[in-house]
Amino acid sequence: MQPLEGPRILLRPLQPDDAPALVLAASDGELWNLPFTVVPSAATVQGYIDTALQGRDAGAVLPYVTVLKETGEVIGSTRFWKVDRVNRKLEIGSTWIAARWQRSFVNTEAKYLMLRHAFDVLGCVRVQFTTDEINAKSRAAILRLGAQQEGVVRNERIMPDGRRRNSVRFSVIEEEWPQVRTGLEARL
């Protein structure tokens, strides 16, 4: 698993010793309290990392931490998951960013690096995104990337609080990637 490097951020492979930095990043906004995603707290970070690394070892997950190159500070996490090499598709998800870096260049640059890697290096024909239907900010951000909304998957997962989550599915397919790439490069 290789790091993905842009002009201002680095997505580097998640490591077991990233726990304190992840909790510190998530404490900016107490993101573990969000009802529509799973962000690690001090109490859950070890399980969060263990699950991601087990998925990596199984070949189904490629987990990263998001690092500001200028300071070396960890400001979030993201991953490729649901990796299906036979059908050349995957999902970008489990993305979260410290509150002070939300709605900045960080998400756009990270998604650009990930989409470029998925299509240009891994040879994907489809990259999908899934978010909670109640997460309006995430839905808008995914649309700004250039992804197409496909529909709502009902009762797609059960959240830690027991709520049955309906999820909105988006995708970018191989034929759309050149236009999406151009749009993201213009925004960067």
Rank of each mutant, 00 (worst) to 15 (best):
Q2N: 15
P3I: 11
G6N: 01
R8A: 11
I9T: 05
L10Q: 00
R12N: 01
D18C: 04
L22D: 08
L24S: 15
A25D: 00
E30G: 10
P40N: 04
S41E: 00
A43R: 06
V45N: 00
Q46L: 09
Q54R: 13
G55E: 02
R56I: 07
R56N: 08
A60K: 15
V67A: 03
V67R: 00
K69G: 08
K69Q: 15
G72Q: 08
G72A: 08
E73M: 11
R79F: 10
F80M: 04
F80D: 06
V83C: 11
D84Y: 02
L90C: 14
L90I: 01
T95A: 06
I97F: 13
W101S: 06
M114C: 07
A118R: 02
D120A: 14
G123C: 02
G123Y: 11
V125G: 07
V125E: 12
R126P: 14
R126W: 11
E133P: 15
E133L: 13
S138E: 08
A140T: 04
A140E: 15
R144H: 11
L145N: 06
Q148I: 12
Q149C: 14
V153G: 08
V153E: 11
R154A: 09
E156M: 12
E156W: 15
R157E: 05
G162P: 02
R165C: 15
S167N: 08
V168G: 04
R169T: 08
R169E: 01
V172P: 07
E174L: 12
W177V: 06
W177H: 03
W177P: 02
T182R: 15
R187I: 07
L188G: 12
